Computed example of a mutant assay.
Amino acid sequence: MGRITARRSLTKVTVGQESRTRIDVLAVEEPLEIRVAGTPLAVTMRTPGHDVELAAGFLISEGIIGDREQFESAIHCGGPGRGNAPNEYNVLDIRLGPGAVLPTPEAARNFYTTSSCGLCGKASIEAVTTVSRYDVAGDPSAVTAADVVSFPGRLRAAQTVFDKTGGLHAAGLVDLESGELIVVREDVGRHNAVDKVVGWALLNDRLPLRGTVLQVSGRASFELVQKAVMAGIPMLAAVSAPSSLAVELAADAGLTLIGFLRGDSMNIYARPDRVRTDPINTQPHPPAIKEATDEAAARDIRAGSF
């Protein structure tokens, strides 16, 4: 899998048994510097792959762009490797389209975020509560509880890199009309996985993501709710707990927030009216997985641009 995984030796220790050395497969974590028109905007730690989607989703989440026309192009540039190594494709320069406003120097986040936090360094909650151009509260989508409890298993089945490493978060998007899991992305950072999903939607001209559910493999933090709202996603489901601020933002925005989605049960913290206990359809949607193959979104990151 190239730079997505790495093989390293380790010493396995079990009490009462002889230690042994073996090779383990690890998820790769490397920095990605996102630039806009040549000016550095942010650096995030991520798993290489789908970098253009990651950058596009990040710009949506930050309110810098709002539709496909405002994302003109992206190219990997500069970023030489360590020592005499070749370019490691860890710098991505974005050219914005008509109507997009270049970020101010004050908006630049020139620091390394950790893999578990997409908002580290923000001065206040007010600075990250970006106003979305999409009306999440007015989305009339509904889904049966029987469908919802199937989402985590379907997401887990699509986590190909997690099977090898056990070290990645995942985010997937379910289309409620077709019942299909239309895109899945993995990353060492849960916020990066969501940005890649949102970026996929942008590059495929799918925004706003009305009539969808965003399923994530971990907890529901404030930044994940914010990213869903900014992309027009009306429902977010997580297998673990939400934070208090995530619940507050979901309630304010009119987003359905589901936590502790395990087995045949769930906790709904905001907008429970969208989850139906009476059947909408006669059978739950089948666990179909279908990912769009739009050329712009599917090219290998080493191609350099799209």
Score class of each variant (00 low, 15 high):
G218L: 06
R156C: 10
I233S: 07
A241E: 14
P287G: 05
T21R: 09
T39G: 01
P80L: 11
I64A: 04
S150Y: 08
L173K: 02
Q17G: 07
I60C: 00
L41R: 02
G81F: 14
Y112S: 04
A297V: 11
R271C: 15
M235W: 01
G79L: 11
H76S: 10
A292C: 13
N90K: 03
G97M: 05
A157W: 05
V128T: 13
R8A: 12
Q17D: 05
N192K: 01
L59C: 10
D195R: 00
K290F: 08
A107G: 07
T104W: 05
S116F: 13
V229P: 00
A6Q: 14
D139M: 01
L32H: 02
A193T: 02
V225K: 00
F306P: 12
L236N: 08
P208N: 12
S265K: 08
V216R: 03
F151P: 09
P279N: 02
G97K: 07
R185Y: 14
P40M: 08
P105S: 01
D278V: 07
A127R: 07
D187W: 12
I182K: 06
E248D: 05
E30M: 04
L207A: 03
T39A: 12
G166D: 13
Q17A: 02
S240E: 15
A238Q: 11
G199W: 12
G218C: 10
A37M: 03
Q283T: 04
E295Y: 03
S116R: 04
S116G: 02
V15K: 04
R262S: 08
E69H: 04
G78C: 10
G259E: 15
I233Y: 07
T293W: 15
G254H: 01
V36S: 01
G179N: 07
S217K: 02
I280W: 07
A228F: 15
R274P: 06
R3G: 09
A85D: 08
V43A: 09
L32N: 08
F222I: 03
S115Q: 12
V229W: 00
A231M: 15
S115M: 11
S116T: 05
